[in-house]
Design a protein around this nucleic acid. Structure first.
Lengths: 356, 356
DNA sequence: TTGAAAGCGCTAACAA
DNA sequence: TTGTTAGCGCTTTCAA
């Protein structure tokens, strides 16, 4: 059906071997004349190399497996985008697998990826269920973990320093003069680390760590909303020494909390300063632009693929696990940047729809 | 390196051909005895088939290409998830390409997918730039378009009936007794169709189509917020005959509008009923659960892959383009379901964090 | 029911 | 600089 190097060889009057050399041999000696003839023949015939055949003999597919637990998470989407971009830059295709946090599906995917002979594997926060599968896989395919790491899996990772992020967020509030700072604390690894950062900041500022200011919650708007209401019902928001600031485990949680605070009559940031965590694009769109800790998702994705490429190329010694430093994005929800808020509100009020 | 059927053949004392027959020949005649020996040998050797080699001879990769314009869009993520799920069910891997709405990248991806010999291609709302590339590709690879369709590309599609969605949304408001219904209208194909639905509903109810009630806007929180403020500044929200309902082009736009309405002192849904469009998961999480038109993203994704599979299998005659009927999800932002809202608020107030 | 042999399209030693 | 040849691992006629 398709045009093969044989056809080109015939048309150009050379051997298939020469064709191969011209078409992909880097720096191999071919006379300028034959080269030209081959190239012209290839173009005239509209030749496309058969990657399958090449993979078979080279034992390299130029495909990278990507294991994703959930597509519905914004930060994850950014990492995935970064992975795609870097992969394309380096010439890899992405074979993507959406496990939907299902252990069985994950195991099947891992097996399939192995069988397919991908050159490497990007594994985003895994279900932890298939450690054995993962270990045996890691023995034959380079793996990089991203976003989170699996305890017990000996593969490099690129993750965010959640602890430092929690520290920065809390320290920002402390520097603004807040002394009574609540934390909306999520369960799970990330939540725990962010909480540790919160504690470290308080400690460094020699502020007491008060258990009643630590509100158990989760990721999502509703969690934040509920938590804020609970703070209210516990009397934390009023009285002589009320909570004046709040570090939420995530942006959506922060949003829920902010709306609850406002429905309770508190002004944000004047009565209550709020810091989020994630740096979702939407956090800058809302009425009160959210001060937050940015997760450089796209950058994480790119780094993962670059590392993976290095390992595939046999330069694995240069690759170490990486824990990225998060950035604090100061906007308006803490009152640190009043101008930002005013500007935002002006933009919102003055401008109309798309036609302007 | 790896175990091949040769090894199995040797161990089982048969020919490679027999091994192949046992391992994948469906219903081919092999004696139970040899079959058992082969199977056992394969297991002992921990054999994994080399898919590359198989693809080479079968001219089938069991891979489907997936072209995605943006990963950051919630509805898109749902479609992508559906695509993945159905693909895994049918035995395909997904080679995914994130074009980031970049025409050059899209062209490169399309070319790569072609060269890689994918069995089929799922093309989500494309950049329209590469119609020629697409057409030549469509000549050699089955393609299904999803989410939107490209004018001029002769490939089946699975999309949502945006017009009908707009109709249903508007009709819902009409049935609730609203007579002065604004529309937050987005530019672009989808926006246009939803707007058509809005007009059709008004027409059918013999209500006038008033240009001043049609507010140009876009998709996103800030657009909705601005548009609502603009309605206010134009005096549409007060006076003897104020607007009492609003159909927004998208959920996020609806959210922005709702927040603006409330900051203007209007109650939702009592003073202002709002319908969105998209059915984002988050729309049920917020303070006032949003009545909206659901885009069955996951279902769209599944259908796309099933259709594609049919075509690949040569059953293409049974495949027609499909325009899905959207569903109205009645929640609380229109006042149609007060109980829902009350229940929601109760849940939000009573329950706390994750520990309960 | 089984095996021998050819070949999918390409690359890479080794010769020429 | 170029060609010959032998595979990569698998499937698949065709013959036994």
């Amino acid at each position: 059906m398709g045009v093969t190097i044989k056809d080109i060889a015939a048309k150009a009057g050379v051997s298939t071997c020469t064709v191969s050399r011209v078409l992909n041999g880097r720096g191999k000696k071919v006379s300028a004349d034959t080269k030209l003839r081959v190239l012209r023949a290839a173009e005239q015939l509209d030749y496309r190399p058969n990657i399958i055949a090449r993979s078979l003999v080279q034992r390299r597919t130029w495909q990278i497996g990507l294991v994703i637990p959930s597509l519905q998470q914004p930060v994850m989407s950014q990492i995935i985008e970064g992975v795609h971009v870097a992969a394309q830059e380096l010439g890899y295709s992405i074979v993507s697998c959406a496990t939907c946090a299902d252990k069985k599906r994950e195991a099947e995917y891992l097996d399939d990826l192995h069988t397919r002979g991908v050159d490497g594997l990007v594994w985003l926060p895994p279900n932890l269920a298939n450690l054995k599968v993962a270990q045996s896989l890691a023995a034959s395919v380079p793996i990089i973990q991203g976003f989170r790491k699996i305890a017990g899996l000996d593969a490099p990772y690129v993750i965010l320093d959640n602890t430092k992020g929690g520290f920065k967020a809390t320290m920002h509030l402390i520097k603004l003069g807040h002394r009574k700072i609540a934390h909306l604390r999520a369960v799970g690894e990330e939540g725990e680390e962010r909480y540790q950062g919160y504690k470290q900041a308080l400690k460094q500022a020699q502020l007491p760590i008060e258990q009643e200011l630590i509100i158990p919650t989760g990721f999502g708007w509703a969690f934040g909303y509920k938590s804020a209401l609970r703070m209210h019902s516990r009397g934390l928001l009023s009285g002589p020494d009320p909570v004046t600031a709040c570090f939420a485990c995530g942006d959506m949680t922060a949003w829920g909390a902010i709306q609850a605070f406002r429905s309770l009559g508190l002004r944000v940031p004047d009565d209550m300063a709020v810091v989020g965590f994630d740096g979702l694009p939407i956090s800058d769109e809302m009425e009160i632009p959210l001060t937050t800790i940015a997760q450089p998702g796209i950058e994480i994705g790119r780094l993962i693929v670059r590392y993976l490429h290095q390992i595939i190329e046999g330069e694995g010694e240069g690759v170490n696990s990486l824990t990225l430093d998060p950035k604090l994005i100061v906007r308006s929800s803490c009152g640190a940047d009043k101008a930002y808020l005013e500007d935002k509100l002006t933009r919102l009020s003055i401008k109309g729809g798309q036609e302007e």
